[in-house]
Amino acid sequence: MKKTEDKFDLPQGTLDLLIMRVVALGPIHGYAIAQRIQQMSREALQVQQGSLYPALHRLEYKKLLSSKWKPSDTGREAKFYELTVRGRAQLKTETENWTRLTDVVGLVLKGTVEGIG
């Protein structure tokens, strides 16, 4: 498997957030979620099945996602995931947390230390 320079490992817990963001757009099955994340990250993130499905199942058991079996575009039955009310609330708080965290981390990384400059 080739490994490109612009692909990197996701920090712990980030995958859940990305999955919920993608699912928030509408009912979607696992394969499409992986594709969508890849597209949206401009190919920088490639989600492995080995992490995707355990994460999906964990979110479902935590009642953040719900699922339904429906025919897909190809006509085959696929398991479609949807955000629950709880999931939507969770996505909102986690997105806020994430934004705040990256802002703060960015501030520190970009800023100059007073007294040195």
Binding site: H29, G30, Y31, A34, Q49, Y53, W69, S72, T74, R76, E77, A78, K79
Partner: peptide
């Protein structure tokens, strides 16, 4: 069964 179906779907789609 569902797990098997789901993973197999992913495989076939890929």
């Amino acid at each position: 069964t569902e797990l098997d179906k789901e993973v197999r779907f992913h495989f076939e789609s890929q």
